[in-house]
């Protein structure tokens, strides 16, 4: 029973961050139809930037956010404007290839700078624990949970009640009509992509404490994100967060009740099962 609750807590905590990762991808897909296969490598980039800042300036990953968030947001904006924008709307496969190419560039760039051996980035809260009866949770996981949900709620409110948020939804629902009302569609797409990458910088720091990192890990995160987004329904806010929790839980239960490697496979198994029975995703209508 203790084991069960332990896995439940861990799964929910990590799953919330998976949800956050997927919200970024869902937003980008919603406004520009781009499925970003370099998503996970941008998470890697965020993690390795934290590592670099730790090595150079002894910054805690949470403090490094002050630098990594603006930096990655700008990188995201530039990547969209110069690389993706010229292709978007014309050639879906070209866009996919571009993001795959970007994935390789990022991965090898990181490999070149940091080398291939697994590394860790220490944080002051890394080994702190929170004990609730039988359940022991790691403080970084609690932080990840709180911040991820706060970000998700913040994003939701932004989409509902700001002009920028409404223009994102308008471009998603009818880009032609949005342009006719004076919305600069390319600009909204670029800013949304930048926002998505900026969110990854935060998610990277949340996932970092206690996690060994290596340059080739990006694909794993990309796949997890794609699964969550597919589960949730590409542009459905609540569905995506729910999908994140499901994947987090299946990973946690898999690792505890099955072996380590099998546990890592469990989310994919669950994904295939859900897609067999609910190919439209977990929820019904889009909440945008």
């Amino acid at each position: 029973m203790a084991e069960f609750l332990q896995a439940l807590a861990q799964g929910l905590l990590i799953g919330s961050t998976y949800g956050l990762l997927a919200l970024g991808m869902g937003l980008v897909y919603g406004v520009s139809g781009v499925v970003n296969f370099s998503h996970g490598d941008f998470i890697s980039l965020g993690m390795f930037l934290c590592l670099g800042l730790y090595s150079a300036l002894a910054l805690d990953p949470y403090v490094s956010l002050i630098i990594t968030v603006p930096l990655m947001t700008v990188i995201g904006g530039l990547v969209y404007w110069y690389l993706l924008r010229p292709m978007v709307g014309h050639q879906f496969l070209m866009v996919v290839q571009l993001t795959l190419g970007l994935s390789l560039v990022l991965q090898n760039g990181i490999l070149m700078v940091f080398g291939g051996q697994p590394a860790r980035t220490p944080s002051v809260v890394e080994s702190k624990l929170l004990i609730l009866g039988d359940v022991v949770v790691r403080v970084p996981h609690v932080i990840a949970f709180v911040v991820s949900f706060a970000m998700a709620i913040g994003l939701y409110i932004m989409l509902r009640s700001t002009d920028f948020g409404r223009s994102i939804r308008a471009v998603h629902q009818n880009a032609h009509a949005a342009a006719l009302m004076g919305v600069d569609v390319s600009r909204v797409q670029t800013l949304t992509f930048a926002l998505g990458i900026g969110i990854l910088a935060i998610a990277a720091a949340l996932l970092l404490p206690g996690t060994p990192i290596q340059p080739a890990q990006g694909l794993r995160y990309t796949v997890i994100t794609l699964i969550v987004v597919a589960l949730g329904g590409m542009t459905n806010f609540v569905g995506i967060m729910l999908g994140g929790l499901i994947i987090g839980l299946s990973e946690a239960y898999g690792t505890i009740y099955l072996s380590d490697t099998l546990g890592m496979l469990l989310p994919y198994g669950i994904f295939v099962l859900i897609m067999l029975f609910r190919p439209q995703g977990l929820t019904w209508s889009s909440s945008r």
């Binding site: 409404r166 939804r169 308008a170 629902q173 009818n174 009509a177 949005a178 919305v183 889009s286």
Partner: peptide, 12 residues
């Protein structure tokens, strides 16, 4: 914009 309220459509 079908999934925006009348008010949001006007604001946009």
């Amino acid at each position: 914009f079908p999934e925006m309220s009348v008010r949001e459509n006007l604001l946009l």
